[in-house]
């Protein structure tokens, strides 16, 4: 799969270092965060500062807590210790703050989670209308704009069940974008897709990165990491084991667990 995205890299000739990363503007700040499921310590002492405009890829074996980590960032899961500050708002039990954060943070799921009873257009306009109070016509115009960006405007009046997996995932990305988020979280967005559909989704993600979106992606697409990320984080046993820029991360992994992981996934 890595060669699919690297080939598109050549066509597009993106240079990751050209994409702007702010030095001062912190998007997400995770400080000494721990999380338990019952007695099971899933996330241990996580410290992570994400600057505005960063593209971070989180990798790691399954069960390492990477999905849980990004699900904590919009409080789909709650943490028990430490702090998570998103766009300057600390996540606590306060529902008002949680809603505030979720409005600014988009999330794309492994299984798309489109609303099957609504058309594509209704999927896209639901949140803008009911959360932001956007007038319907305006919300629909925005929705069509993003559907064009993900290259499926002609599907607007179909239902999710009528679309292929790749199309559904692109709709899901467009649905998040309609809320004009400042940060996008991707939870294994290509894992549930047939191989031939991975490329179309990755292309959308690459173009988002080019626009300077702050992104945190949990993914196994190492080609994507190499090409788009400015930082790769490796997690195992609920903790961050190693982080580095992609070049050093792939060519010169330091920790033995990282080396083992990379040798397994890059054959």
């Amino acid at each position: 799969m890595s060669d699919i995205s690297s080939s598109s890299a050549e066509e597009r000739t993106i240079n990751a270092s050209q994409m702007k990363v702010s030095d001062t503007d912190v998007a997400i700040d995770v400080v000494g965060m721990h999380k338990w499921y019952g007695d099971f310590h899933v996330l241990r002492d996580i410290d992570l500062k994400v600057m505005r405009g960063e593209r971070i890829v989180v990798a790691g074996p399954s069960g390492s807590g990477k999905s849980t980590l990004i699900r904590c960032m919009n409080r789909l899961e709650e943490h028990q210790q430490g702090q998570i500050i998103v766009n300057g708002t600390e996540l606590t039990a306060d529902l008002k703050r949680i809603d505030e954060v979720r409005r600014e943070v988009g999330m794309v799921f492994q299984h798309f989670n489109l609303f099957p009873h609504l058309t594509i257009l209704q999927n896209l306009t639901l949140a803008p209308i009911w959360v932001r109070g956007t007038p319907q016509a305006e919300a629909e115009a925005t929705a069509m704009h993003y559907l064009e960006r993900v290259k499926i405007p002609e599907q607007a009046n179909k239902f999710p069940g009528q679309l292929s997996g790749g199309q559904q995932q692109r709709v899901a990305i467009a649905r998040s974008l309609c809320m004009q988020p400042k940060i996008m979280l991707f939870d294994e967005p290509t894992s549930a897709l047939d191989p031939e559909m991975v490329k179309e989704v990755l292309e959308v993600m690459i173009s988002l990165a080019e626009e300077g979106m702050t992104m945190i992606c949990v993914t196994h697409e190492m080609g994507f990491a190499r090409q788009v990320a400015n930082r790769v984080i490796f997690m195992d046993q609920g903790q961050i084991i190693e982080q580095n820029d992609p070049e050093n991360f792939f060519s010169n992994p330091q920790h033995e667990r990282t080396q083992l992981f990379l040798s397994q996934i890059l054959h």
């Binding site: 809603d99 299984h111 959360v131 809320m179």
Partner: peptide
């Protein structure tokens, strides 16, 4: 996943 997707879009309970 449906509830999670709705929550992540900022919809209230």
């Amino acid at each position: 996943g449906q509830t999670e997707a709705a929550s992540s879009l900022g919809l209230r309970e």
